[in-house]
Simulated scan of single mutants.
Amino acid sequence: MPSMDQPETGDMIADLEAAAARLVTAREMVSRRVIGQQKVVDLTLTALLCGGHALLVGAPGLAKTRLVEALGTVMGLDANRVQFTPDLMPSDILGAEVLETGADGARAFKFIQGPVFCQLLMADEINRASPRTQSALLQAMQEKKVTIAGAERPLDRPFHVLATQNPIEQEGTYPLPEAQLDRFLLQIDVDYPDRAAEREILLATTGTEEAEAERVFDAAGLIAAQALIRRMPVGEKVVDAILDLVRAARPGTAEASALVADDVAWGPGPRAAQALMLAVRARALMDGRLAPGIDDVAALAHPILVHRMALSFSARAAGRTLDSVISALVRETLREDIAA
């Protein structure tokens, strides 16, 4: 007699294959507009598939704004952009109640929505705004709602924040607090394109016409893909690898690696493990696989851990970096699993 869960398993496999095919098209569409940044495109799509937010760190002119615009088109999301500046106020993002006088002379408060009421919000140069304004996004990012004048107002679904940060110019900026950094699923480092990619950029963007992206998903389709990600099976070895890596990165604990004892001031919390659990599934799906492996954990270790850890003073003075620490942790904790 066939197992009772076979039809459900068959339906899930079909759903995963269909979603993987749409994602291939989505990646191609975004890459039409963002040339030479395939890893950045894939990581940003990973964040959206997981229902999370992403922090894009890179020098000016590396197509970060173009990427967000292309994603809004391809994923069928209502997108807004806010340029963060030192004089930006929380109400400029969230909205505010204003007193209006009606035709009959009666006065009443009316809520005017801010740009946060969208499905894809680009927070450009987020570290240029004051901590007070940065914190206006905390509740929105975590709870998908905002509280204004004592009233809770739900945000559109899905809701994602893609924030950008310039690592070069730090004068007059306000570093994001650890609590807010932890709410970004991924930190995506945007590097300069290689020579071949930059040549393609020159030819594609300085002519009379540019390639246009077309819609592949819509809001409902993305929500369905996010639900599908959470249904993907994850093997025990992958779960253990995630726990081994995250727990080894916490100095002062029983499971801490010797690598972090002197070099790391504080390590990742449970959100890092949760982010890895979701992100490895999304990466597997975009590769057309039905379940993630240890290699996915290793590949996503840096973008998930780098903004959830801090180097000690002695490590900074010695010239060590979080990149090298995380790479060493991956080799130490996942070496046997990757070799197998």
Score class of each variant (00 low, 15 high):
residue 138 L to A: 05
residue 102 G to Q: 02
residue 119 Q to I: 08
residue 98 V to W: 06
residue 134 Q to P: 00
residue 140 A to H: 00
residue 113 Q to D: 13
residue 132 R to H: 08
residue 136 A to N: 00
residue 136 A to F: 09
residue 102 G to P: 00
residue 117 F to M: 08
residue 105 G to L: 09
residue 97 E to W: 14
residue 94 L to Q: 05
residue 142 Q to P: 06
residue 98 V to Y: 07
residue 112 I to G: 05
residue 105 G to Y: 02
residue 96 A to V: 14
residue 115 P to Y: 10
residue 128 R to M: 08
residue 104 D to G: 15
residue 133 T to L: 11
residue 146 V to R: 00
residue 123 A to G: 07
residue 132 R to G: 10
residue 118 C to M: 06
residue 109 F to A: 08
residue 124 D to F: 07
residue 122 M to L: 14
residue 130 S to A: 15
residue 122 M to T: 01
residue 109 F to H: 01
residue 104 D to H: 11
residue 116 V to C: 08
residue 128 R to F: 11
residue 103 A to Y: 11
residue 108 A to T: 14
residue 126 I to N: 06
residue 106 A to Q: 15
residue 133 T to C: 07
residue 114 G to R: 07
residue 97 E to I: 11
residue 137 L to T: 05
residue 106 A to M: 13
residue 110 K to T: 15
residue 106 A to P: 06
residue 114 G to M: 09
residue 98 V to S: 03
residue 129 A to Q: 03
residue 145 K to C: 13
residue 113 Q to H: 14
residue 114 G to L: 11
residue 124 D to T: 04
residue 93 I to Q: 05
residue 136 A to D: 06
residue 104 D to V: 10
residue 127 N to P: 01
residue 108 A to D: 13
residue 141 M to Q: 01
residue 122 M to Y: 02
residue 105 G to S: 03
residue 120 L to I: 05
residue 117 F to V: 06
residue 100 E to W: 09
residue 100 E to A: 14
residue 127 N to A: 09
residue 120 L to W: 04
residue 142 Q to V: 13
residue 114 G to F: 07
residue 98 V to P: 01
residue 145 K to V: 12
residue 146 V to L: 00
residue 95 G to L: 09
residue 140 A to L: 07
residue 146 V to G: 00
residue 118 C to I: 03
residue 105 G to I: 09
residue 125 E to G: 04
residue 97 E to C: 13
residue 142 Q to F: 11
residue 96 A to N: 09
residue 119 Q to H: 08
residue 129 A to H: 02
residue 96 A to M: 14
residue 113 Q to K: 15
residue 117 F to A: 06
residue 125 E to S: 07
residue 131 P to H: 04
residue 143 E to F: 10
residue 130 S to H: 14
residue 135 S to A: 14
residue 126 I to E: 04
residue 101 T to I: 15
residue 100 E to L: 15
residue 93 I to M: 09
